[in-house]
Simulated scan of single mutants.
Amino acid sequence: MDPKITLVTIGVEDIDESLRFYRDGLDFPMQEREPDSDVAFFTLDGTWLSVYPREKLAEDATVADDGGGFSGVTLAHNVASERAVDAVLAEAAAAGGRIVKPAQDAFWGGYSGYFADPDDHLWEVASPELTAE
């Protein structure tokens, strides 16, 4: 197996709300799609992100969609500075995201915080090392 991730699909409750958050709020570049399509693809640097109805994603994977809380998965977005971490978290909040953990010095030596998208998928925004600003 070639060790790389080419696509991350997240299950969502409301595709239109996810489009407003990712496409309109965070300005993720979206591939063309039919207006009534139940999937959307965003082209990111090095991978793709797709949003798909949660119940259909669970059905496709043949697992229960019981909403059991934290799934044990977070997505991460690394940036170059503390200021950039703060800016991305502010952008996510303005787009309708919820700040889960405000940015702060991290135990591993960097600076990071977390936001949740409208379906509570967690995103860590981090700067890998402290920088003078």
Rank of each mutant, 00 (worst) to 15 (best):
M1P: 10
I5F: 08
L7M: 09
V8L: 14
T9R: 04
T9Q: 11
T9E: 05
G11E: 14
V12H: 01
D14I: 02
D14S: 07
S18P: 01
L19N: 08
R20E: 06
Y22S: 08
Y22E: 05
Y22L: 01
R23G: 02
R23C: 02
F28T: 06
M30A: 06
M30G: 09
E32I: 11
E34R: 08
E34Y: 15
P35W: 13
P35D: 04
D36A: 10
D36T: 15
D36V: 14
D36N: 03
D38M: 14
D38A: 03
V39Q: 13
F41T: 12
F42R: 00
D45Q: 10
D45W: 10
D45C: 06
G46D: 02
T47C: 12
T47Q: 13
W48A: 06
W48G: 11
S50I: 04
V51S: 04
V51M: 01
K56N: 05
D60T: 06
A61G: 01
A61V: 02
T62W: 09
T62I: 11
V63G: 12
A64W: 12
A64I: 10
D65E: 09
G67P: 04
G67M: 04
V73K: 01
T74I: 14
L75F: 08
A76I: 06
N78C: 10
V79D: 09
A80L: 07
S81H: 14
S81Q: 12
S81D: 15
S81K: 00
E82C: 06
E82G: 09
A84P: 08
A87Y: 06
V88I: 12
A92R: 00
A93N: 11
A93S: 04
A93F: 03
A94H: 05
G96R: 04
I99D: 00
K101G: 14
P102M: 10
P102Q: 10
A103N: 03
Q104F: 11
D105H: 14
W108I: 15
G110Y: 08
G110C: 01
Y111C: 04
S112L: 02
G113V: 12
A116E: 05
A116Q: 01
A116I: 02
D120I: 09
H121A: 00
W123P: 00
S127W: 02
P128A: 13
P128Q: 10
E129N: 11
L130P: 04
L130V: 13
E133P: 11
